[in-house]
C-alpha cells in the first residue's frame, strides 16, 4: 500500500517540478507563434510569419554559420588535446586520473567570467588573433564535459589489455591505437564531440567579451534581437531549444543502445 502511495506522490512531485521548469520554454514557443501577446493571459492569435522572417534573415544565417564554425573548430581542438590524455590515463597510467580530478571542479572555481578576466589581461593587447584565444579558451571550458564523456568511452572494455595485445601481436603503438582503440570508442567519442560542440555552439560570455560583439554568434544575435524584436527573438530561442532537444534525444538514444548492449554482455560472461 505504502509503495503505491509513494509512486503517486512521486508522480505529483515530478509533474509539478517539470511544469515549473518547462513553463518558460513553453511560453517562448507559444510566443513565437503568437500574432501579438502583450498584457494578456493568452496570445491574440497565431502566425508563422516570425519564422519566415527569421529564416530569410541574412543576419540569422550568418550567425548560425559562425556558431557552427565555432562549434566544429572547438571540437577538433578539444579532441586533439584531450583524447591522447584520456587514452594515456586509461591505458598506461591510471594514477594520472587522480591528478586530473581538478578538471571536474574547474567550471565552478573558475567560471567563464573569471577566466575571461585573465585572458583579457594577458592577450587583449598582444598582436595575436583574438579568435585563436577564444577558440582555445572555449576548448578549455568544454574540458570537464569532454573529459568525462571521453573517459566514459573507456569503461566498456579492458582497453589496456586490448592495446597491449595488439602490441604483442606486432603492431606499433600508433597503429594499435588507430586499429584497436579508436574503433571501439567511436560511440563514446561521438557523444563527447556532440557535447563539446553543443557547449561551444551556445557559448556567450567569452565570445561577447573577447571579440566584443564583432563576431556575432547565435547567442549574441539572440541577445541583440531580444533588445529590439521580442517576436523574432522568441523564434530564435525556440529554434535553439529544438536544437538542444534534438541533440539530447540523439544522445539518449545512443546511450540506451549502448546500455542494452552492456547488459547483454554481462549476461553473456555469466552464461558461458
Amino acid at each position: 500500500m505504502e509503495k503505491h502511495a509513494d509512486k503517486v506522490i512521486a508522480k505529483i512531485v515530478i509533474t509539478l517540478i517539470s511544469v515549473y521548469l518547462v513553463a518558460p520554454i513553453i511560453a517562448t514557443i507559444m510566443y513565437s507563434f503568437a500574432k501579438s501577446w502583450v498584457n494578456t493571459i493568452l496570445p491574440d492569435g497565431w502566425t508563422l510569419e516570425w519564422y519566415l522572417q527569421l529564416v530569410t534573415n541574412s543576419d540569422f544565417l550568418s550567425a548560425l554559420v559562425r556558431s557552427i564554425i565555432l562549434g566544429i573548430v572547438t571540437t577538433i581542438i578539444a579532441m586533439c588535446c584531450f583524447l591522447p590524455v584520456v587514452f594515456y590515463a586509461n591505458v598506461y597510467d591510471e594514477s594520472i586520473k587522480a591528478r586530473l580530478r581538478f578538471i571536474t571542479v574547474l567550471p565552478f572555481t573558475i567560471p567563464g567570467i573569471v577566466l575571461v578576466t585573465g585572458l583579457v589581461r594577458v592577450y587583449a593587447n598582444l598582436p595575436i588573433p583574438q579568435m585563436l584565444v577564444l577558440l582555445l579558451a572555449i576548448s578549455l571550458l568544454s574540458l570537464p564535459v569532454t573529459y568525462q564523456a571521453l573517459d566514459n568511452a573507456f569503461i566498456a572494455h579492458d582497453f589496456r589489455a586490448m592495446f597491449e595485445q595488439a602490441l604483442i601481436l606486432g603492431d606499433s603503438p600508433l597503429k594499435a591505437f588507430v586499429k584497436v582503440v579508436i574503433p571501439n570508442i567511436r560511440v563514446g567519442m561521438f557523444i563527447a564531440m556532440l557535447l563539446t560542440f553543443t557547449s561551444a555552439f551556445g557559448e556567450y560570455v567569452l565570445t561577447n567579451i573577447i571579440l566584443g560583439g564583432n563576431y556575432e554568434t547565435l547567442k549574441i544575435y539572440m541577445y541583440r534581437l531580444m533588445q529590439s524584436n521580442g517576436q523574432a527573438s522568441s523564434v530564435l530561442t525556440t529554434v535553439y531549444f529544438f536544437f538542444l532537444a534534438i541533440i539530447s534525444i540523439i544522445m539518449i538514444a545512443i546511450m540506451k543502445r549502448q546500455g542494452n548492449k552492456k547488459v547483454e554482455e554481462v549476461g553473456d560472461t555469466k552464461k558461458l
Partner: peptide, 18 residues
C-alpha cells in the same frame, strides 16, 4: 613488445570487439 615474437593471453581475453 612488438619485436619479441612472444604470445600472450590476458585474463580479460582482450578480444577486439570490433
Amino acid at each position: 613488445a612488438n619485436q619479441r615474437n612472444i604470445g600472450m593471453i590476458f585474463q580479460s581475453y582482450a578480444l577486439f570487439p570490433n
